[in-house]
């Protein structure tokens, strides 16, 4: 146990080391960094602008008011932004596996995953998180919820667990690329498609699709179920109430599982001929 803890802290240290180095090197061009961050923020804000435009014609979407949607959207967006910041670069591993530069990661004395994840760490992704937090903040203020400390904590846990689940998805996508070095595209449509879908309330979609998302792709734990609970709504599947509390557990399980898949992928790495 102590050994495992040591190796974890070792990995985190390595991650921070590499990420910090990339941050320093991007900060040398401060103006371009600010532009990129703002651009990133604006680009992801466009999604929400589309929702706003929709609401200029209607009062409710699938029975949800604009502040409620802001809550859903803001929570997902923040979770995703966090995961993207931490692990978003892991998907580049496919490129490295294909061209053989992955070799060089294996001869360094720090965990490969830390190197892969921190590679080209881009602080400009804070833009998306900032935008998500802004929308979430507005949703929190405007939605018809009687906030208590417990509910606030619940929201926080939901966002963090959501980020962890997205991390697991990124990790699975990265691990997958050891077997199919050009699986990058597939993984991409999976995560980004998932994000767009999660930003709309579930009743808009067919019931079966929602069921599939809840059970097959546990991304629904990211925010649907918990936020529905916060809003005091029934979920369309009528799952028992405790299911919406399972987010953190699901996140931990998923991370463990995809961690194993990553390891298996690593073991099957076969380098290139030159």
């Amino acid at each position: 146990m102590a050994e495992r803890l040591a190796s974890w802290s070792h990995a985190v240290r390595a991650y921070l080391l590499i990420a910090g180095m990339w941050v320093r090197s991007t900060m040398t061009y401060r103006a371009s960094f600010v532009l990129m961050a703002v651009g990133n923020c604006l680009a992801s804000a466009l999604d929400f602008v589309a929702i706003l435009l929709m609401f200029s014609h209607i009062d409710a979407l699938g029975g949800f008011t604009l502040p409620e949607i802001a809550l859903l959207y803001g929570a997902t967006c923040t979770s995703f932004g966090l995961a993207d910041l931490i692990l978003g670069n892991a998907e580049r591993v496919g490129q490295r596996v294909r061209d053989g530069t992955f070799d060089t990661l294996l001869v360094r004395p720090v965990p490969v995953l830390a190197q892969v994840a921190a590679d080209r760490f881009a602080l400009r992704r804070l833009g998306r998180i900032a935008q998500g937090l802004a929308v979430l903040g507005w949703g929190v203020a405007a939605a018809d919820v009687a906030w208590t400390p417990l509910k606030a904590l619940f929201l926080l846990v939901t966002v963090v667990a959501g980020a962890a689940i997205f991390c697991a998805v990124f990790l699975a996508g990265a691990a997958f690329q050891f077997w199919a070095a050009d699986a990058s595209e597939v993984a991409n449509s999976f995560t980004y498609g998932g994000v767009t879908m999660l930003q709309y309330p579930p009743t808009v979609f067919a019931r079966d699709l929602v069921r599939g998302v809840t059970f097959v792709v546990p991304l629904a734990f990211v925010n649907w179920l918990p936020v529905l609970r916060l809003l005091g709504r029934d979920d369309p599947l009528h799952l028992p109430g405790w299911v919406s509390l399972c987010g953190p557990l699901v996140a931990v399980l998923l991370l463990g599982l995809t961690g194993l898949v990553w390891r298996a992928g690593l073991r099957s790495y076969r380098s290139t001929g030159s």
């Binding site: 053989g100 530069t101 070799d103 060089t104 294996l106 001869v107 360094r108 004395p109 965990p111 030159s274």
Partner: peptide
Amino acid sequence: DRTRLARRIGVVFGQRTT
């Protein structure tokens, strides 16, 4: 023990940079 070994060895690949 790949990571432990990594501290004891140095590697240069002429074909690609580390």
